[in-house]
């Protein structure tokens, strides 16, 4: 969960602003360092090393990966402090000239969490409708009724398609219980 907590302080345009914005990439170094440390600690706490049948044992590779993460965290920090920086990814629908809209990203993340909670309670058709509609709303669509109809349609069709036709088990929930 460390990853999610990184988010607030990496809002930035890169070249200007206070130092913590300019060097927001150091958050990545921190992430690498923390994950690396986690891997190393987890590895050293577990008992059991190599034996005759398995000379390397289950922890050697993990230890190397953890060490590499810490090393890369250091290297990346040096690179960032020297002025290097990773290029943000461009794409068809991406406008990098605007500052990142973290409110939308946060809302989408919240909707995914809500979906995870709602699936066992209300089943796929309803949870999926909430997910689809919530996402369209977060992304700026304001044609609420039309969006709801589309969301419910997509969700229901997907449920029928996967659950009934493709045999992928998606819970129908109480609503679909009515139909049998």
């Amino acid at each position: 969960m460390t990853v999610l907590e990184e988010r607030p302080d990496q809002a930035s345009s890169d070249q200007e602003g206070p130092w913590y914005r300019r060097y927001s990439e150091l958050g990545v170094s921190l992430l690498l360092f923390v994950v690396g440390l986690l891997v190393i600690v987890d590895t050293t706490l577990e008992s059991g090393s190599g034996g005759n049948s398995d000379p390397l044992g289950p922890h050697a590779v993990a230890f190397v990966v953890g060490g590499a993460l810490v090393l890369l965290a250091v290297l990346l920090t040096v690179d960032v402090l020297r002025g290097g920086h990773g290029e943000a990814e461009a794409g068809e629908d991406i406008d990098l000239s605007t500052p990142p809209d973290l409110r939308t990203v946060g809302m989408l993340a919240g909707i995914l969490v809500a979906t995870a909670v709602l699936i066992p309670l209300l089943g796929w058709p309803i949870a999926g409708t909430v997910l689809f509609w919530g996402a369209t709303y977060s992304l700026g669509s304001r044609t609420v009724v039309r969006d709801l109809v589309i969301a419910a349609g997509v969700s229901l069709v997907t449920w029928v398609l996967f659950d009934a036709l493709l045999g992928v088990d998606l819970p129908g929930g109480p609503l679909m219980g009515l139909f049998g």
């Binding site: 990814e89 991406i94 406008d95 605007t98 990142p100 989408l108 977060s138």
Partner: peptide, 10 residues
């Protein structure tokens, strides 16, 4: 999707 959401071309 999250990345595009942060920089959606209006």
């Amino acid at each position: 999707a999250l990345w595009v959401a942060a920089h959606l071309r209006r």
